[in-house]
Amino acid sequence: MEKHHHEKKTLWVVLLTAVTMVVEIIYGIITNSMALLADGIHMGSHVLAIGLSWLAYVLVRRLSASGTFKGESKKILSLSGYSSGLMLLIFALVIMVEAIERIFHPTDIVYKEAILVAIIGLFVNIASAFLLHHDHEHSDHNIRAAYLHVIADALTSLTAIIGLTAAMKWDIPFIDTVAAIISSLVIIKWSVGLLKDSGAALLDLPGSHEHHHHH
C-alpha cells in the first residue's frame, strides 16, 4: 500500500512541476531571462525525471504483481535514476552554451515579470519537496532522485531570483547570465552524482549504497 502512496504523491509533484515548467519556459522566452529559462528547462528535466520514477513505480508494481518477472525490480528504479542523471547533464550543457553566447550578445530583460515567475517556481519546488520528503527512504533511488531534483530546482529558482533582482537593481543583464551558468554548474554536479550512484547500483558495484548520504 505504501508504495502506492508514493505513486500518488509522485504523480502530483509531476503535474505541479509540469505546469510551472511550461510557465517558466514561456516567460523565460518572453522576458528574455536566461536564468528563468534555465530554471524552466531544469524543471523540465525534472518533470521527465520524476515522471520516469513514477513510471518506474507503476512498472515495478505491475511486474511484481504479475509474478512472471524474475528480475530485480530495484534495477528499474536505478535505471530510471540513471536516465534522469543523463538528461540533466545534457540540459545543463545546453544552458551553459546558451548562456555563454548571451555574454557576447546581451539582450534586454523584462525583470519584474521574470522575477515574479521565478518566485512562483520557488514556491512550487518547496511545496513539492515537502510532498516528497516524507517518503525519503535511502533504499529507494527513485524517491531520492525525485527529491534531489526538486531541491536542485528550488536552488536554481533561488539563483534566478537573486540574479534577476541584482541585474534589475544595477541594470546589469550580465548577472542574469551568470545566474544561468551557476545553475547549470549545480545541475552538472547533481547529475554526475546521480549517474555515479545509480550506475553503481545498476552494475551491482560494492559501495553503491554506502555513499548515499553525501551531496
Rank of each mutant, 00 (worst) to 15 (best):
Y111N: 08
A114C: 07
R102I: 12
N125L: 07
H105C: 08
T107R: 04
G121T: 12
R102G: 11
A114Y: 03
I109R: 04
D108I: 12
G121H: 02
A114S: 15
E113C: 04
R144V: 15
F104C: 10
A118D: 07
L131I: 15
D108W: 00
I126C: 03
I109G: 06
E101M: 11
S139E: 14
R102L: 08
I103G: 04
R144T: 15
A118Q: 10
R102C: 09
F104H: 11
H133D: 06
G121D: 04
I103D: 01
H141S: 15
V110P: 00
T107C: 03
N125Q: 06
L131W: 01
A118S: 14
E137F: 01
D140Y: 00
D108E: 13
N125E: 06
L122C: 10
I120A: 12
H138K: 11
I115D: 07
I103W: 00
F104D: 10
S139Y: 01
I143G: 03
E113V: 11
N142P: 01
R102Q: 11
F104T: 12
I120E: 05
E113Y: 08
Y111K: 05
D135N: 06
H141W: 01
G121C: 08
E113R: 01
Y111F: 13
H105E: 11
F123L: 14
R102M: 09
I103L: 15
F123A: 13
D108Q: 13
E113I: 11
Y111W: 05
F104A: 13
H134D: 09
Y111A: 11
I143W: 00
L122Q: 04
T107K: 07
V117S: 08
A127R: 02
L132T: 09
H133V: 09
N142Y: 00
F104I: 14
V117I: 15
G121W: 03
H133G: 13
E137K: 05
R144I: 15
I115P: 08
V124F: 07
D140L: 12
A127W: 00
R102W: 00
K112A: 13
A129T: 14
Y111H: 07
K112T: 15
H134F: 00
H136P: 01
L116R: 03
A129C: 05
A127D: 00
H134N: 06
R144M: 14
R144L: 15
A118R: 05
A127I: 14
H134L: 02
F104E: 10
E137S: 12
H134Q: 08
